[in-house]
Design a protein around this nucleic acid. Structure first.
Lengths: 242, 242
DNA sequence: CGCAAGTTTGACGTACATCAAGTAGTGTGG
DNA sequence: CCACACTACTTGATGTACGTCAAACTTGCG
């Protein structure tokens, strides 16, 4: 029934979604035209907006919804008692997050900038999955993709140097945004550091080194262009020295 | 139909499984008696044995099966070009692994010691999931659990010190094996190091320090008893100094 | 324009890695 | 039962990549 949501922590205007949304509310399968799965998702999704740095959900909240980013960017993170923070993932338009399938969210989700999100009630998704194999397949596929990405994250954090991590991050972002080497980074240096398991200073120095080596060019902190993708790729996959 | 498997890389005697297996081929839901899901799994699973240090599957292999450990221990790992290795997970009896839901395995799976495993063809699981919501729920739940564990791994690798990692590892293992603080570690120091993103020397030193502080007692490298769980827990969750 | 937040750069410290000996444990053959 | 060799683990000495502390610079917004 997709009633108005009242889950926003601070933010903004929430509104029902049965009206034809002007943005793509689905996809996820491929790019089909008249997709029954798409229709189902569209039927149960509610659009919600969040202001910069507000929480979509907190660590420990009951996992009652699954989300999809429509606009803006989201981060999921955990903060330790002494303030150390680890970011588990960044989510851009088209990405699903909050896929925990039972119990509580293990990480908080926050809007990096002003963001628009569709929220799908888990209960309805479960129901749909039981009768619609397509929905089920989509959910399995999303969970599986997320697992795979997280496992790659583990390898990076466990065994790569600061430079390798940075190169890996930039390349991953380029691929995620369709291969365009001109990146608009929505997140701060601190976010990047907390994602890569580094400090903000180390991230900054790494970027400066890439600049000096003409691997990238930076115009205004949030805009980076990859100049030498091949060298960055060699770096990212663990071959030493460029 | 569960014919004989011929997937073992080196190892051992493989045999069909339709006969009543002497070990528990299922569980996963809870501990039900006459469980239809259990029956389905039992019907499509094949038992396979693997010798110490042999591969169940390699990185890049097509993900055609999902596995469950019956006896022994399994590790999943990836090796970088220059030999650096990261272990993504350890799997003990009752654990499922190889849950990649499409494409190829991103990590190799190897037997840490002589191990017995049940293998479920993915195609059959998918089929069963479409008609049996219980099977579907089980798969989602397994994937979700694995995702959650991997995300915790990320936090550990990104933001914890060597001592914190070790404490976390030992406690996690104790919980996994039903809370008994007397641990029999099936894996080597090198395995532990590659799981925690450390070197073998750092792991060894950490264990020695825990011994000196009377947090654990070690009798023969593979047998560890946790003496002061509370202090270890404080350490693991990021409170400094014991 | 001017401040505040974000970022970069520099100097220095340290946790962990690396290199290098030892010291158990474990299995084999006499 | 003991010599042996082999592998796994521990311990020590030293190096270094990255963290920490601190100051400058840059950017964007009221």
């Amino acid at each position: 029934m997709a009633a108005l949501l009242q889950m926003a922590p601070i933010a903004g205007e929430t509104f029902a979604t049965r009206a034809r949304a002007p943005w793509p509310v689905l996809e996820g399968g491929k790019g089909e035209g008249a997709d029954p799965v798409a229709a189902i998702l569209h039927g149960i999704g509610s659009v919600v907006k969040f202001k910069r740095n507000t929480a979509i959900f907190n660590e420990g909240d009951a996992a009652r919804h699954v989300y999809k980013v429509i606009g803006g960017a989201i981060r999921t993170c955990r903060v330790l008692v002494d303030g150390r923070r680890q970011i588990a993932g960044f989510y851009l338009p088209g990405d699903f997050f909050g896929l925990e399938w039972q119990g509580e969210h293990g990480f908080a989700a926050e809007a990096i900038d002003d963001a628009v999100v569709v929220s799908y009630p888990r209960s309805q998704l479960e129901l749909a999955a039981e009768t619609q194999p397509g929905v089920q397949k989509l959910l399995m596929s999303l969970l599986s993709q997320r697992l795979s990405a997280t496992q790659n994250h583990v390898v990076m954090l466990g065994r790569q140097t600061a430079q390798e991590r940075l190169a890996w991050f930039l390349l991953r972002l380029v691929r995620r945004t369709g291969g365009n080497p001109n990146l608009e980074l929505p997140m701060s240096r601190l976010d990047i550091a907390d994602y890569l398991g580094l400090t903000i200073e180390t991230v900054s120095r790494g970027i400066s080194q890439f600049k000096r080596k003409n691997l990238i060019s930076v115009t205004g902190a949030h805009h980076v262009a990859l100049l030498d993708v091949a060298s960055l790729e060699a770096l990212a996959s663990g071959e030493r020295e460029v």
